[in-house]
């Protein structure tokens, strides 16, 4: 069982969350010429890192907020969690 510390609600089990994928992926800016390669990278291509991975989760059975979680994809250890709009250093 994963335990995720929701920055809004506190420590909860993974049953309350749903996964949203790599949080480092940025949508290309609006009103700007976007190359095919940029779209591919946004829609399809993923680094899928082994090790520390910053990812989005939604506290779907809780406060329903999207949050960011820093987690190790090899050990499942969770290091830190952030609000969705927090910048991660």
């Amino acid at each position: 069982m994963l335990y995720i510390n929701c920055p809004h609600c506190g420590m909860r089990s993974q049953n309350e969350f749903s996964y949203g994928g790599d949080a480092s992926v940025k949508r290309p800016e609006l009103n700007k010429e976007v190359s095919d390669q940029e779209w591919d990278d946004f829609v399809y291509n993923r680094k899928s890192l082994r090790g520390k991975h910053l990812e989005l989760w939604q506290h779907i059975s809780g406060c329903r907020q999207w949050i960011k979680v820093e987690r190790d994809t090899a050990t499942h250890e969770i290091f830190r969690t952030f609000k969705a709009d927090e910048e991660v250093a």
Partner: peptide
């Protein structure tokens, strides 16, 4: 299991 993982072992939920 639903999240990126290289662990070759899962969780009970």
């Amino acid at each position: 299991d639903g999240y990126n993982s290289y662990a070759q072992r899962g969780n009970l939920p």
